[in-house]
Design a protein around this nucleic acid. Structure first.
Lengths: 187, 187
DNA sequence: TCTACCATGTAATCTGTTACATGATTGC
DNA sequence: GCAATCATGTAACAGATTACATGGTAGA
């Protein structure tokens, strides 16, 4: 379970409640992990059962509104996290992308469809890039490591975009009927 | 299910058996998807049940060695794949990396541990890069799309490595006791 | 001889996702 | 008034991983 350590890590900064944790992961690490409520609340429960975190405060408002349940790290949780942090990562980087998955097989479909999907991707990543650039000031107030990783995200975004431009232009230049896949592929 | 379409896509090239499909995905798309036998054989079964693929041949050797069960695409499978191919991708790119996950939290651990993990990563990705460069000729015989994606993989590999070098050097330059994380982080 | 690789499959388990259920607050 | 966001939680399902079980072939 990876989200487990993300939660333990975040609680080093300050005590947080479930909604806040989800929000934070989404906004700051969204390109790495996706989280959903189902996962957050069950993880919070299992971490509590394991003794790694504990309910530190419950903030209730007078008018029946939902309570905020704040969790904090226990000493055991801090130890567990430290142990994990110095371990070598179990796996290599994995790039999961339903667009790229289609891309490899574009030769088996229509060129117009492929071009349309590429344009969509360009739009998406142009937006993301400008959003990220606008957030630079946010990152600057964070620690150096968080900062460095934000830079990597930005660089990667730029690399991917320029690759998309190149691919689009190369495809536009090929005549409509031209075969764009080698039928005698060696597998 | 994503692996489902990877299998349907690969069977466009030629009929293949389970082990072969796994091997191919691992070697060519390993940075995008991980597969394991459990998944391959159950996927093959469910695709057969759905009528998208069919057993086309069974190659058995005389001496009790395991048989190779070759599968081929059905017309329905081809239709299903075409439909999927022109659909917009459901999700955005996701970068899953247990190393980067640790990296964001390096400020809460020891600098020496962090440096060691970074060195390990550098080794790993230097090896991968030279392996990929050696494979360029392989890609060239493939279709243009497969070619383009191989280029993206190479570019990304280079970007990540130079980021790792930069990070390592920056960390070496900071004095041993120096705090490398802002304790008053804004979350 | 021993390791690595070829080859198929099942069962148990762990993770992750979607949908459901509930209700307050804030801004347009 | 309505949509978005804040807030917590459960149930069902889908997807992925690990371990187990079995046995042949090729090369160091």
């Amino acid at each position: 379970m990876s989200i487990k350590y993300a939660v333990l890590g975040l609680l080093h900064y300050k005590d947080m409640h479930g909604y806040q944790i989800k929000d934070h992961i989404e906004k700051n690490f969204g390109y790495m992990w996706t989280v959903n409520f189902g996962q957050i609340y069950t993880t919070l429960k299992s971490l509590t059962d394991a003794g790694f975190i504990a309910l530190s405060d419950v903030i209730s408002s007078d008018n029946g509104a939902p309570q905020k349940k704040l969790y904090s790290l226990t000493d055991e949780g801090r130890r567990e996290f430290k142990k994990w942090l110095k371990n070598s990562p179990e796996k290599q980087m994995l790039l999961r992308d339903p667009f790229l998955m289609r891309f490899v097989f574009f030769g088996f479909g229509e060129k117009e469809d492929a071009l349309r999907l590429i344009e969509d991707q360009i739009q998406t990543y142009e937006q993301q890039l400008s959003r990220r650039k606008g957030n630079v000031f946010r990152w600057e107030r964070q620690g150096v490591y968080v900062n460095m990783i934000a830079e990597l995200g930005l660089n990667f975004n730029e690399l991917f975009l320029s690759w998309l431009y190149k691919v689009r232009d190369a495809m536009r230049d090929t005549a409509p009927g031209e075969r764009t896949v080698d039928p005698a592929v060696q597998l």
